[in-house]
Structures are given as structure tokens and as C-alpha cells.
């Protein structure tokens, strides 16, 4: 039991985030909870507007000022609630303990600074061991080597690098301070498949070597299947299904939305004449449907779905938030 507590790195409890604009209030994240142990990789899957990136930004407290607000919930990282710590504390945590890899490598590097300069920046800001300049420069070389970029190219500028190499520089930057947690927001979406395979296998290797935890945000179920230990499927700001990788990819029972997500991907192994997509569109986040937020698109919606919030059904580590499974007789059913 003691061991379990020690291993827990991040816990999010009932997190709610809104964006307030002059016109509307956008309910981006609506009460999500999850845990992440040391060394684990959590995949957050969902479509545009599901609240994946907002979740990531709230962990780092990088929500747009005055507009994005955490209205409820706790983000507990190493026993400390990140929603309460001061901004100067937060600055120490960002980059040093939690770092983020952004989606677009083409725009997340500064075009007028050399690669070496950009990597040094993070190291200088978090220079807790008081290393001198030469030691820091040696660390830059080490990081570049780690991600497979020849160190004689460190004086070059981002435009001289290809997309895959830029993303590797971004990864090197994120890893420079040996963070405990890496949040990767669609790290390979902008890359070609062969380069994507290179970057993913490199990230997996580095994660194991350095013993970090990772939150991988993606819309690609294939990437999740290959790299994650746990999965959370998000829809309209809620986690509608979560579990271990075996629960999501190996079991029969799924939330109708997860079934729809799988049905939308052309399968390479089985030939299907037609895809079975989910009808309709994501709901408007300023005006979310009542009851289960998926009910207007759900092929199996019942009357109760529009009226009551769906229950959380648990099968061991696998949870599904859906009325359908309550009917089948298992509130908090364990197996």
C-alpha cells in the first residue's frame, strides 16, 4: 500500500475548466479524474474539441490568461496541488519537472535563435546544480546525441532542419532538465509516417531509459496501442471510457463512442466495404446536451440518456460511463 502511494506521480480529481469570453462560456473540461504512476504512459484520445489539449495546458497552468479558468478540482503532482501553488513555484516546475512537447515542430522553435541557444535557455533557467557554461554546453551536446542529431549542427537555425529533426530538437529541449513527466500533445501529427515511426520509437526508448512518465495526447488509436499503458477516451470534456491498454483494445465491452472511433478507421487487416462512422458532429461546447453528452449521436441512445447523467460502471481497471451497461446489470460490477 505504501509502495502504491510512493509510485503515484500525478492525480487529477474532478477537474473542470471553462473559457470565458464576452459572448459565451465554453465548457472545455467537465469533471475529469485520472491518475498516473511513475514510469507509466497515459494516452488521451479524442477528436478536435474534446478537451485534450485544455487538460494538458491546465496541468502546466498555461491556460490563456483571464479567459481560461480552472473552476473546480485538484491537480496533485508529487503530493502538491498545482492549482494552488504560486506562479514563481510553477515556473520552477515547468520545464524542470513537467515539460511539454507541442504539436507543431515548425512553429514551436524560435526561428532567430540557433538550436544550441534554444537548448541552453531551458538549462540556464533551471540550473539547480550550478553548472558552469561549459558543463551546460556539454549537456546540450549530450541531449542532441540522445535524439540522434549530429552535434556539429547545433549552430544551425530551425529552418535548416527538416520536420522530423525539428521535432527531435523539441523533444531534446523537453528532456534537457530530466523532467518527471512529459506531456506530448500530438507529437507526430505533423510528420510523415516513416519519420513518425522514427520519433515514436525514439520517445519510447528514451522514456524507458530515463524512467519518465508521459501523457500522450493523440487522435490516432494506432499510436496509443503501440506506446501507452493506460488510455482515457475523451468526449466533450469528459472521460467516457478509461482503462489499461488491454481493457481498451482487448475487451468486448466499450462505450458506443469508442466503438464509433474504432469503426471510423479503415482497418488494414480486415477488408470492409464501408466504414461505420459516428453520425453527426461534436456538440457545441457553449451549449452541451443534457444527460449523456454523446446521446444525440449515439446509435444506442435510450430515453434515460437525455435525462440523467450516465453512471460510472467499473470492471476492474476498466471504467465506462454509459447508461447502457447499467441496464445490463453492473453498477460498480467488478470482475
Amino acid at each position: 500500500m505504501n509502495n502504491e502511494i510512493k509510485n503515484k506521480l500525478l492525480e487529477i480529481r474532478n477537474l473542470k475548466v471553462v473559457y470565458e469570453t464576452d459572448l459565451d462560456t465554453i465548457y472545455a473540461v467537465n469533471g475529469i479524474s485520472f491518475e498516473l504512476d511513475k514510469g507509466q504512459t497515459l494516452g488521451i484520445v479524442g477528436e478536435t474539441g474534446a478537451g485534450k489539449t485544455t487538460t494538458a495546458l491546465s496541468i502546466l497552468r498555461l491556460l490563456p490568461q483571464d479567459i481560461g479558468k480552472i473552476t473546480e478540482g485538484n491537480i496533485i503532482f508529487e503530493g502538491e496541488d498545482l492549482t494552488l501553488v504560486s506562479e514563481s513555484m510553477m515556473r520552477k516546475i515547468r520545464g524542470e519537472k513537467i515539460s511539454m512537447i507541442f504539436q507543431d515542430p515548425m512553429t514551436s522553435l524560435n526561428p532567430v535563435l540557433s538550436i544550441e541557444r534554444q537548448l541552453l535557455e531551458a538549462l540556464e533557467l533551471h540550473n539547480t546544480q550550478n553548472r558552469d557554461k561549459n558543463q551546460l554546453k556539454a549537456r546540450v551536446d549530450e541531449m542532441l546525441e540522445l535524439v540522434g542529431i549530429p552535434k556539429n549542427r547545433k549552430h544551425e537555425y530551425p529552418h535548416q532542419f527538416s520536420g522530423g529533426m525539428k521535432q527531435r530538437v523539441v523533444i531534446a529541449m523537453a528532456l534537457a532538465c530530466n523532467p518527471l513527466l512529459i506531456i506530448a500533445d500530438e507529437p507526430t501529427t505533423a510528420l510523415d509516417v516513416t519519420i513518425q515511426a522514427q520519433v515514436l520509437s525514439m520517445m519510447k526508448e528514451l522514456k524507458e531509459k530515463l524512467g519518465m512518465s508521459m501523457i500522450l495526447i493523440t487522435h490516432d488509436l494506432g499510436i496509443v496501442a503501440e506506446t501507452c499503458d493506460k488510455v482515457a477516451v475523451m468526449y466533450a470534456g469528459e472521460i467516457i471510457e478509461s482503462g489499461s491498454i488491454e481493457d481498451i483494445f482487448g475487451r468486448e465491452k466499450h462505450h458506443p463512442y469508442t466503438v464509433g472511433l474504432f469503426g471510423s478507421i479503415p482497418n488494414l487487416e480486415i477488408e470492409t466495404p464501408r466504414l461505420s462512422p459516428i453520425d453527426g458532429l461534436m456538440p457545441d461546447p457553449t451549449n452541451l446536451p443534457s444527460g449523456c453528452k454523446f446521446h444525440p449521436r449515439c446509435p444506442e441512445a435510450m430515453e434515460i440518456c437525455s435525462e440523467e447523467l450516465p453512471p460510472i460502471i467499473e470492471y476492474g481497471s476498466h471504467t465506462i460511463v454509459c447508461h447502457k451497461f447499467k441496464k445490463e446489470g453492473g453498477v460498480n460490477e467488478k470482475n
Binding site: M165, A197, A225, E226, I245, L268
Partner: peptide, 22 residues
């Protein structure tokens, strides 16, 4: 072989990673 496949089988497969860029 670079396509990530959404199934558990793919986890065990050691994929061929091509070196170098286009």
C-alpha cells in the same frame, strides 16, 4: 510497416525504422 495499427498485436512487433531523411 510504419503505420501504427490499433490493436494489441502491434505492441510486440519490433518495427523496422528507416534511418535518415528524404
Amino acid at each position: 510497416s510504419s503505420i501504427p495499427v490499433p490493436s494489441l498485436k502491434s505492441r510486440s512487433i519490433q518495427r523496422e525504422v528507416v534511418k535518415g531523411e528524404v
